[in-house]
């Protein structure tokens, strides 16, 4: 039997959907018994959301003022102290989990399986390498705890409707004071969240400017879609970094993805190839994006987009 501990990602009041997707991955391990750990200064609301997730046995609360913000060096020693008795410790492969989980793994003296996209058995997993150009099947040692992160685009969220037990967990750990979060700058947007949106419209360098990107927002609003961008568009300063899709940005799996003025480098494709339907609009008919697009249109975006926004 596998006893799995999942580290909840949250902002203090809302459980991030990455947690429900991590649960969905863990639930594919045969005989999995799943607990979720919520580390927070006030864990109540988040723990209640975690307890609703299908397949979860217990929600463990680790409440202390130092857990107000997610600092790996603060959270990891508490998780390591809680690890005894668990065969697996999983977190989401978001920037939260990527920052935290290797720190946990090192405290437990094991390597980490990053970006699990499929479970083959309790200790064997598939994961993408080389920006998704290859898929490796890897095996973690059977005699030590498996620490892993879950590629959330590979999983749908676990269902709700459960009412798992909520318990507080007492762990003693020495916590450092050498790291302080001063500020979080987050773009406020009414649009659907890029990582969970059913539809996403994304623009590339071809938009030409921050103002040019306005066409992307208008199309997105027409479709009630989230908005993303290629690395080139972020580098050029048209949009902020949290909109970047790809190997070094967000990995997404919407039902509909519309790539506009994005050539489709492998590093971008790896972030979208789990999308249901991919639409590409590009001036260059040789653009690699057309090799993977379900619907392609070769045209100048500045002519096409106003027409498309009008037609929808």
């Amino acid at each position: 039997m596998s006893k799995i501990l999942i580290i909840a990602e949250h902002d203090g009041s809302i459980l991030n959907s990455s947690t429900a997707k991590t649960v969905a991955c863990a639930a594919t391990i045969e005989g999995a018994e799943i607990d979720i750990a919520v580390l927070a200064s006030t864990a109540g609301p988040v723990a209640a959301q975690a307890a609703e997730l299908e397949s979860v046995t217990r929600v463990l609360i680790l409440e202390r003022p130092e857990n107000e913000q997610a600092i790996a060096a603060i959270l990891a020693p508490q998780i390591a102290a809680l690890a005894g008795g668990y065969s697996h410790i999983f977190g989401p492969s978001t920037t939260f989990g990527k920052d935290l989980m290797p720190h946990v793994a090192a405290l437990l003296s094991v390597n980490q399986v990053s970006d699990i996209m499929a479970v083959e058995s309790s200790h064997t997993f598939k994961r993408p390498i080389y920006a998704g150009s290859a898929v490796a099947t890897v095996e973690a040692p059977g005699d030590s705890v498996v620490v892993g992160t879950v590629r959330i685009a590979s999983y749908g969220a676990a269902n709700g409707g459960n009412s798992a037990a909520i318990e507080s967990a007492d762990v003693s750990a020495d916590l450092p004071s050498h790291t302080r979060i001063l500020e979080v700058q987050s773009g406020v947007s009414d649009r659907p969240d890029l990582q969970t949106a059913a539809k996403v419209v994304a623009g590339g360098r071809a938009l030409g400017s921050e103002e040019g990107f306005d066409l992307i927002y208008r199309l997105a609003d027409k479709l009630a879609a989230g908005v993303g961008a290629s690395r080139a568009a972020v580098d050029a300063g048209y949009v902020p970094n949290e909109m970047q899709i790809g190997q070094t940005g967000k990995i997404i799996a919407p039902d509909l993805y519309i790539a506009i003025g994005i050539s489709g480098a492998i590093q971008h494709i790896t972030g979208i190839k789990d999308a249901g339907t991919i639409v590409a609009i590009n001036k260059d008919e040789e653009a690699p994006i057309f090799e993977i697009a379900d619907i392609g249109l070769v045209s100048d975006l500045f002519n096409t987009l106003p027409e498309l926004i009008e037609a929808l």
Binding site: A134, V135, A136, A140, I292
Partner: peptide, 17 residues
């Protein structure tokens, strides 16, 4: 303890639409 790489495969390809 090392994580063993057992095998490698190309990713699932999307068909050109």
């Amino acid at each position: 303890p090392e994580i063993k790489e057992l095998s490698f495969e190309p990713p699932a390809e999307r068909e050109r639409g």
